[in-house]
């Protein structure tokens, strides 16, 4: 089990005329909540898309749970939540989850569990299109929880949520990690850094730091993650 959940080697992604990831190498250890932090447009979503196997890549390898990213065997083992909520707005929460559960062969008990986990029990029979923005994105998250995937790839799952819900979701992430799930969670909100077991700081396609939150603060002598991030950028030789 020492093998990392995700191993990215020399990943190069070009979108249009722009090189988004110019040869990125990184590993995500198993059973942890790993935060992928950095400014918008820095390549976070692109990296996540490459890990779930929907991104056309120029070169390099992405190995997920021991298999090449996107291979058929991984599709029920990896859960993916896109940045904008991707559930069916004209179906209820339960109807959505029932469909996603049937795709990954999950039991109907797991549907209720997922709804409870994202605290949408009172809205289980509400159409997703009628939910608030935060509820909508939680419904999208729940659709990835059914079937208990071994790896959860979450693109900005806490955007637009109030502090209480954000805290609850991070607690959920840690409960899942304690049960053995690996979570890779992106965010551009630096204060979420302290909630992660490990941090990846990504800027302009380059990993600036791959460390624990404490390690990062110690190394940079900064008071918080935001300050640490700025310190690292300033220490970088001008490109």
């Amino acid at each position: 089990m020492d093998e990392p959940a995700v191993l990215v080697q020399d990943l190069c992604v070009v979108r249009g005329s722009r090189t988004v990831l110019p040869g990125l190498t990184v590993a995500v250890p198993r059973g942890q909540v790993v935060g992928l932090l950095g400014p918008s447009g820095g390549g976070k979503s692109t990296l996540l898309r490459a890990i779930v196997g929907v991104q056309i890549i120029e070169s390099g390898t992405v190995t997920v749970l021991g298999e090449p990213a996107g291979s058929a065997g991984l599709r029920s083992r990896v859960g993916y939540v896109t940045q904008s909520p991707s559930v069916f707005a004209d179906l209820t929460v339960t109807q959505n989850l029932r469909y996603f559960a049937s795709l990954v062969g999950a039991s109907s008990a797991s549907i209720a569990e997922a709804i409870t986990a994202v605290d949408l029990t009172s809205h289980a029979d509400t159409r997703v299109g009628e939910l608030s923005g935060g509820q909508h994105s939680r419904a999208s998250l729940a659709a990835a929880l059914v079937g208990s995937p071994e790896l959860l790839v979450l693109d900005e799952p806490t955007v637009g949520l109030d502090p209480v819900l954000r805290r609850d979701l991070w607690e959920l992430f840690h409960r899942l990690a304690d049960a053995g799930t690996t979570l890779l969670v992106s965010s551009h909100v630096m204060d979420e850094a302290t909630r992660c077991d490990r941090l990846l700081l990504l800027r302009e396609g380059v990993i600036l730091a791959d460390d624990t939150p404490d390690g990062l603060l110690r190394r940079t002598g900064a008071a918080d993650a935001e300050q640490a991030f700025l310190t690292l950028i300033e220490a970088e030789p001008a490109a």
Binding site: G70, A72, S76, Y80, V81, T82, S84, F88, F100, A143
Partner: peptide, 10 residues
């Protein structure tokens, strides 16, 4: 985005 998500499932 539902299509992209569906294509990451079986």
């Amino acid at each position: 985005g539902t299509l992209e998500r569906l294509l990451t499932t079986p």
